[in-house]
């Protein structure tokens, strides 16, 4: 157990390509649905309790040592739009490169060989956490935090939002992050009895709809 590795993994500067993605914030800003710190907080809370919870569950399960290929399939079933499946695999491939350099392990090598074009990012993140000696709950925290820190950072750039305000949004979401990570880790513990059905599958219609619309934009600041 080496808790400090969590700071390395969850650091926004971890070189896994996340900075190029807005987590749906770019289309929401363009549509006027995110226009200030309050609406950013609403956006992040909705994303955390849907996409964030799903990602955290997958990451916790992967960190607990459940079959990453089965989890990758569960991630596909929970990602109905191709734009988000493509993004998740692209980010998974980048996470894999960074993780294999940072915490080399046979399990990472095996997943990289089985999914050369990338597994879903939370599955890779969970396996990276496992290779770093972290616990499933740690992986759930890293995945959940990333689903809100990405949009918050992107909104600073998209809206010229005050970075202090964006950081305050993240601080106010801390209790929700605790709940989400705990729920995700608890769900992952039920996999031996219930299979991957135990993992959360929460969805957000507008995240799906706007991600697919955004992928068709000819010019955009963020990849997703």
């Amino acid at each position: 157990m080496n808790r400090a590795a969590l700071f390395v993994l969850a650091d926004g500067r971890f070189p896994a390509g996340g900075h190029a993605h807005s987590g749906g914030a770019e289309p929401a800003v363009a549509a006027g649905r995110i226009k200030d710190a309050a609406s950013l907080e609403d956006f992040c809370r909705g994303r955390l309790h849907t996409a964030g919870l799903v990602a955290a569950g997958l990451a916790a399960a992967s960190a607990a040592g459940h079959d990453p290929l089965e989890l990758d399939e569960a991630a596909d079933a929970r990602t109905p739009v191709p734009a988000l499946r493509t993004t998740a695999r692209k980010l998974g491939r980048q996470m894999m490169r960074a993780a294999r350099a940072t915490w080399p392990s046979g399990e990472l090598d095996a997943l990289a060989a089985a999914r050369p074009r990338g597994a879903h990012q939370p599955v890779v993140l969970g396996l990276a956490a496992r290779s770093a000696g972290l616990a499933p709950l740690d992986a759930a925290y890293a995945a959940a935090y990333e689903t809100v820190s990405g949009p918050a950072t992107a909104t600073v750039r998209l809206l010229s939002l005050d970075p202090f305000d964006a950081t305050a949004v993240l601080a106010r979401l801390a209790p929700d992050l605790d709940k989400t990570a705990a729920a995700a880790a608890a769900a992952a513990q039920r996999i031996p009895e219930d299979g991957t059905d135990a993992l959360p599958a929460a969805s957000a219609p507008l995240l799906d709809i706007t991600a697919q619309q955004h992928a068709a934009w000819p010019v955009r600041l963020f990849a997703s």
Binding site: G24, A28, R33, I34, S39, D42, F43, C44, R45, G46, R47, L48, H49, T50, E73, A74, A77, R78, P80, D176, T196, D197, P200, A201, A202, S203, A204, P205, L206, L207
Partner: peptide
Amino acid sequence: GRTLLDQEAEYGPGAPGWDGPAVLA
């Protein structure tokens, strides 16, 4: 024998963020 689609949704009072810009706006 494989799961093709698995989706949960929660809306209305008590569902966090359901009415916000990420979910139903």
